[in-house]
């Protein structure tokens, strides 16, 4: 971290507006982290520290909140964060096989990032899309009702998108 982190003036405006919407500063932590995520791309140690200092709350509290949720983008996560729902409906509809397929294709287990830095695989809890199980959330997009072939296609599509292609 050579450059010092700071919110853009636009983000700062949004943050200040947020503060007016919550009873305490601390209560605005979740949406403020969202702003930080889009400003800085990820929530690593310096970014969490920035938010804590900005909001004048203990850094440990920010750390606890960021790691509690699966939906924040932590440091070291690949370009594509494949979050496989493994709660009941998805589990019954083959989430385990989906995870296994990704592991086979990309050579990474849950919590790991592929060597090329493109993919991170996580198991997450219910994504609220049980009617279309099994579901993968990739970054902000949902991919629903997945067959194993769909999983292969998704990986291919993401690779193409990243312009790297594959063998």
């Amino acid at each position: 971290m050579t450059e010092t982190l700071a919110f853009s003036s636009e983000a700062m405006k949004k943050y200040e507006w947020l503060l007016t919407r919550y009873p305490t500063r601390q209560a605005a932590l979740l949406p403020t982290l969202r702003i930080a995520e889009s400003e800085f791309g990820e929530l690593g140690v310096p970014q969490m520290r920035y938010v804590a200092d900005l909001m004048e709350i203990p850094p440990a509290l920010v750390f606890g909140v960021v790691t509690f949720y699966t939906h924040y983008r932590r440091a070291g996560v690949g370009t594509y964060h494949l979050q496989v729902c493994s709660t009941l409906s998805c589990a019954l509809r083959g989430a385990g096989d989906v995870v296994q397929r990704i592991t086979e294709r990309l050579g990474i287990g849950t919590g790991e990032t592929s060597e090329c830095g493109l993919f991170t695989l996580s198991k997450v809890e219910c994504l609220g899309s049980c009617d279309t199980a099994p579901v993968i959330q990739c970054n902000d997009d949902y991919h629903e009702g997945l067959s194993l072939e769909d999983v292969d296609a998704l990986i291919q599509q993401l690779r193409d998108e990243a312009g790297k292609g594959s063998a």
């Binding site: 969490m48 520290r49 804590a52 850094p59 440990a60 606890g64 509690f68």
Partner: peptide, 21 residues
């Protein structure tokens, strides 16, 4: 002094400090 927090959740949750503090 608020140095401690619980990180992660569910059966992975455990007490920790902010890195470097």
């Amino acid at each position: 002094t608020s140095e401690l927090c619980v990180v992660e959740r569910g059966d992975r949750s455990v007490v920790d400090v902010f890195p470097g503090i």
